[in-house]
Design a protein around this nucleic acid. Sequence first.
RNA 1: GCACCAUUAGCUCAGUUGGCUAGAGCACCUGACUCUUAAUCAGGGUGUCCGGGGUUCGAGUCCCUGAUGGUGCACCA
Length: 486
Amino acid sequence: MELSEILRVRREKLAELQDAGNDPFKIVKYNKTHNTKQIIDNFDEMEGTTVSVAGRLMSKRDMGKVTFSDLQDREGRIQLYIRLNEIGEEVYTQVKKYDIGDIVGVKGEVFKTRKGEISIKVSEIILLSKSLQPLPEKWHGLKDMDLRYRQRYVDLIVNPEVKNTFIIRSNIIKSIRKFLDDRGYIEVDTPILNTIPGGAAARPFVTHHNTLDIDMYLRIATELHLKRLIVGGLEKVYEMGRIFRNEGMSIKHNPEFTTIELYEAYTDYKGMMELTEQMIANVAQEVLGTTKIVYQGEEIDLTPPWNRMTMIESIKKFANVDFENITTDEEARKVAKELKVHVEDKHTRGEIINLIFEEYVEGHLVQPTFITDYPVEVSPLAKRKPDNPALTERFELFITRREMANAFSELNDPIDQKERFIKQVEAREAGDEEANMMDDDFINALEYGMPPTGGLGIGIDRLVMLLTDSYSIRDVLLFPTMKPKD
RNA sequence: GCACCAUUAGCUCAGUUGGCUAGAGCACCUGACUCUUAAUCAGGGUGUCCGGGGUUCGAGUCCCUGAUGGUGCACCA
């Protein structure tokens, strides 16, 4: 295949270097003393000292016998001042052939130009890697979403805010770990390859194990394994990791995404509520330095305590219907019809409450709000409220109209749990592909006795979106799922 | 899954009612320049107009179809 001129020229430059015995790809290391930010931030102490830095050339201003260039490393950029007299004719001729995108190591004195820009007066420069592909244009960057997602490495080179998002993502994750570790939690790893996918209502990815000759499922949640560990006496556990759901993609859904689930013995959903607001506020404070943030133009106040409302109260408030007075499935269906919420004959009162909530309430929940007391029909793993067995000790957290967390007092009654699994299996047999499967071993674990336990799950990607003001989940995933081009 | 929009040079984008050899800026190439910073100055267009059909004397432009992406809806406790 014929290369365009722009690609051909760079390959020729590389071949020339190789022919002259200067193959940049044979260089194995470079000793740098500083990064660009250290020099910029500490200029007063560093002026006049000799440093070595390494990075990518991002621009070039060739003035004949002097060349200015900007070197970019992870922390920032610094200007290079490359003077013929300083480095000699032979090296300077090489420098003239350097391209934007090349990786170099330089040594030189820190100084400030007449125009006041902190720079390095280069005394030694060496090509550490040749770039054979031209970078996108210098002030518009890379805008094509398709290219940005498929070639994230280019996006990261030319769009600084992208790099920043993923540094914040890393800091958020570190901050969460520290928060939980400081409270005596232990981090665990449970299987991603499952023979029974459980802990959530979702369609799994199916794969095959050749030696065992069985189908296996990628996990859709970590819940059931983590609760087994509570049975085992680990008392406080968490797992942060990737889960997989074979469902649609959207601005807030990717087939693989990251959650944290945590379980703590001897507490309940109210304990989880406090932990949730403390943890998220703490993360925001540590990572962003504030608990008052802006998401897509809306101010969000993450300062605890957050709003709390039962699901039935929220429906009363936003749909003007009081389910305290609606006790039968038939009445509930009638109300749904009046509210123009589509329900089927099989739907029960609890399911209808949930459907009305989704239709009428979610869209109002901008500031952090805990919605509590979910119907038992939509909460197959949550403990019933002692004074009302139709409801569960559960909450979901909503911020910016999005579900951010889900938590409950964990159901530890093996007989009740088995009955709820049976109901799920019936739903599955009736065609609901997202209903839970029977997990006999999990029931067995509960039969040994699980202490009263609070459990919590948080969508890490959605939290990162919130804290980095990212519009799409794809903007917080380094390599979002993409369809192959051909 | 449905609808709408997009796809033109390495990148960011123009391209009129269907009309002559498809344009600009950056990048790149040649040359000048020892404090520039969107460096400047002089010269040079490097292209599968997303793919495949069709209409037409003539298609980047119109029609059909496919691909990928974006957005909305649906799906997703």
